[in-house]
Structures are given as structure tokens and as C-alpha cells.
Nucleic acid binder design. Structure first.
Lengths: 188, 188
DNA sequence: TAGCGTTTTGGGCAAACGTCCAAGACGCTC
DNA sequence: GAGCGTCTTGGACGTTTGCCCAAAACGCTA
């Protein structure tokens, strides 16, 4: 049988996913079309519906995959910071790499919205975020933060919110936020 | 001249805006169509392009108008709270009224995203949010909060972020967040 | 009542959409 | 080289979109 063809097909599938990721951010979830994805992936338009049942299916797979990898990397790198202050500073520096209008930031925001209308995506995304929050709370607890569960919730929400706000005003000074965040985590 | 006609026309224009507001939240910015808005407003499809140059124009006017009124009310009611703790509790209670999947929450999120792609909307929305942040910082300063500028930024971002997160998990306990937020605002 | 300015109507138009499909291309086994 | 399974192609289909426009409706003035 055509084993090489199957491998090549898998590569095409992956290229479609990789092409879809920046497009969701650039054009918006609803504005991504089959032809758009196919063109950026360098394949014929019809190939999308060979590998995916629908455009929505492709977008769900692409956005969930990207977000999962992103959060994973975030938590993994955070774990390497020695204490709360270093972790906080790293988080703020990490966020400074995104201006809120880049494809990665926009993809996450688009996925939040799409999730509110696609149950399957909401379930998957909710699990991702809950897992992220739990791991963040664990790290906070391990490093002596006060009220780690609630603090992780506020911190996680603030990260998403700040990314949105930076889309409106990229000059927003993230480093200046270290002080109030530190107070929040300080015990007693 | 037809003065009554002009008044009636203005009423129709307002009805189109009012019809567009929930639709942006329900269907999503890109999914709102002329015929959809016209039907909900109870008018013929063509009337949209009589009162607005384009669908995008209508959506910009509708979303900006709604957001402005919402933030205004928020700041006005917050000003009535006597101290930081009462203000914080009120904010959390206010947010609990939205489950993150209601049209109002979704409209705000949709507007953030649309703003990233429509310069005119971004400018208008950025001004709204900056003004809100400044007024929130003013209230915090008046009531003795530490680092009011930075705290207002974190607080404002956390509100938006929490609304997004509640769309994924409506059971998220907002009242439990009062403690870390209080710590953040505490002086010293 | 006739004329005028404004608003409203409902259908028409080209363009773009998601999806499908018959035909071809490719690599593999006999 | 023939046959087979998988992947790829490019165009066709019906639907829906934003926008436009001639005609009708309306309230007003003269």
C-alpha cells in the first residue's frame, strides 16, 4: 500500500494547520476561508475538505493545538524561575513580546469568542485554561504566595485582559505593574 | 419640508443601532448581515444602506455607543461606594451578573478584536478604555489605594479577562477573588 | 389638490462563500 | 509494466453576501 503517500498526506494536513494559525489572527475566525488557507499552504483549494470535514473543524484543530503548545511552554518556562518576584518579572517580560495585535494574541482572543459559540471547542478550551490555572496555582503555592487559587485566577485573567488592552495601546507599561501584582501575592 | 419624516428617520436609525447591539454578541462581528439587522429592526433590508454607508459603519457606531454607555454607568455607580472594600465587592457582584456568554460580554470582546483591524474603531475604543482607566485610577487614589495608576490597569485588565474566562467556566467564583484584590490595593 | 423633499421598499447584481466530485498524479506491491 | 490505494487537482454547484437603485409611500407646504 501507499505508505509514503500517507506520510506525505500527514505533512499536508500539518501544513494546513500551520497555515490556518496566523490566518485566524490576521483575518479573524469567521473571515478565514478554504481558499485562503489552501493558498497559504501552497495546495489546491479542494484539499482542505479531504483532510478536514469542514473549515470549522480545521480551525478548531489549529487553534486548540496552538494554544495548548503555547500554554505548555509558558508553564514549563515559568517553573524554571526561582521565586515569586523572578516569576512575575518573567511573566511581564514575556507578555511584552506581544503587542496585542500580533497573530498569536489575536488567535487566542478569537478562540475565546469562537468557543462561546462552538460547544466542542468550548469544552476543549475550558479544559486547557483550567489546567493552566491549576498549574499556575501550584507554582504560586510552591513559592509561598498567599491564596494561590484565587491569585492564579486573577493573574491568569489579568494576562488575557492585558493582552487585549495592549492591542488598543501598545505603549502600556507592563513593568510598572510588578508592584501591585507583588502586593497581591505577598502573604498576610 | 418634511420635518416629521426626519424625526421618523432618526428613530429608524436608532432602531437599527439597537438591533445591531445584541446581534454582534450573538452571531459575532463578521456574521452580522444587513438582512439580519433589518429583520430584527423590523424594516426593509435596503434601509441599512440608507442610514449607514456600510455594515461596518453601523457596527462601529453600535458597538462604540453601547460600550461608552456601559463604562459610563460603571464608573458612575462605582463612585457611589464609600470605600475600597465596598467598591471591590460591588465590582465583583456587578461582574457576576454576566456569565461571559451573554450578548453584552461578547459584544465587548468582539469589539476588542474588530478594533485591532479597523483603525477608526481602535482609536475610538482606545480613548474609551483609557478614559475608563483614568477614572478608575482617580477613584482608587481618592480612596487611598496604593499605586492607583498601576492598580487600575491591572484591575481593568482583570475585569475583561475574567469575563472571557467566565465564558468558558460560568461557575468561576468571583467573590473568592476579593481577598487577593484587596491585598493588591492595600497601602504599604 | 398639486408638488416637493425625505424615507422606505423589495428586488437585482456581481462576487465570494463552503462543499462536493470526477479525473488525474503519485508511490507502492506483485 | 499492470493494478491498487492514497492523495491532489481544479472546476462546478447552490447559497449568501454587501451594496445599489428605480419606484412607491409619506408628511409637509403652498
Amino acid at each position: 500500500m501507499g505508505e509514503a503517500a500517507a506520510i506525505r498526506g500527514e505533512a499536508t494536513r500539518r501544513r494546513l494547520l500551520e497555515a490556518a494559525v496566523p490566518l485566524i489572527g490576521e483575518a479573524g475566525w469567521h473571515a478565514v476561508t478554504t481558499r485562503m488557507v489552501a493558498q497559504r499552504a501552497g495546495v489546491a483549494p479542494g484539499v482542505v475538505h479531504y483532510h478536514f470535514a469542514s473549515v470549522t473543524d480545521l480551525l478548531i484543530a489549529a487553534s486548540a493545538g496552538f494554544t495548548r503548545a503555547m500554554l505548555d511552554r509558558f508553564v514549563r518556562e515559568l517553573a524554571e524561575r526561582p521565586d515569586l518576584d523572578a516569576g512575575l518579572d518573567w511573566m511581564l517580560a514575556e507578555m511584552a513580546r506581544y503587542d496585542g495585535a500580533d497573530p498569536a494574541s489575536l488567535l487566542v482572543a478569537e478562540t475565546y469568542l469562537a468557543a462561546s459559540r462552538i460547544p466542542r471547542l468550548r469544552d476543549e478550551f475550558a479544559e486547557l485554561v483550567a489546567d493552566f490555572r491549576a498549574r499556575l496555582a501550584g507554582w504560586l503555592a510552591d513559592h509561598g504566595a498567599a491564596d494561590p487559587e484565587a491569585a492564579a485566577t486573577v493573574l491568569g485573567a489579568a494576562v488575557d485582559g492585558l493582552i487585549l488592552h495592549r492591542g488598543l495601546d501598545p505603549r502600556l507599561d507592563l513593568a510598572a505593574l510588578a508592584r501591585p501584582l507583588r502586593s497581591m501575592l505577598r502573604k498576610e
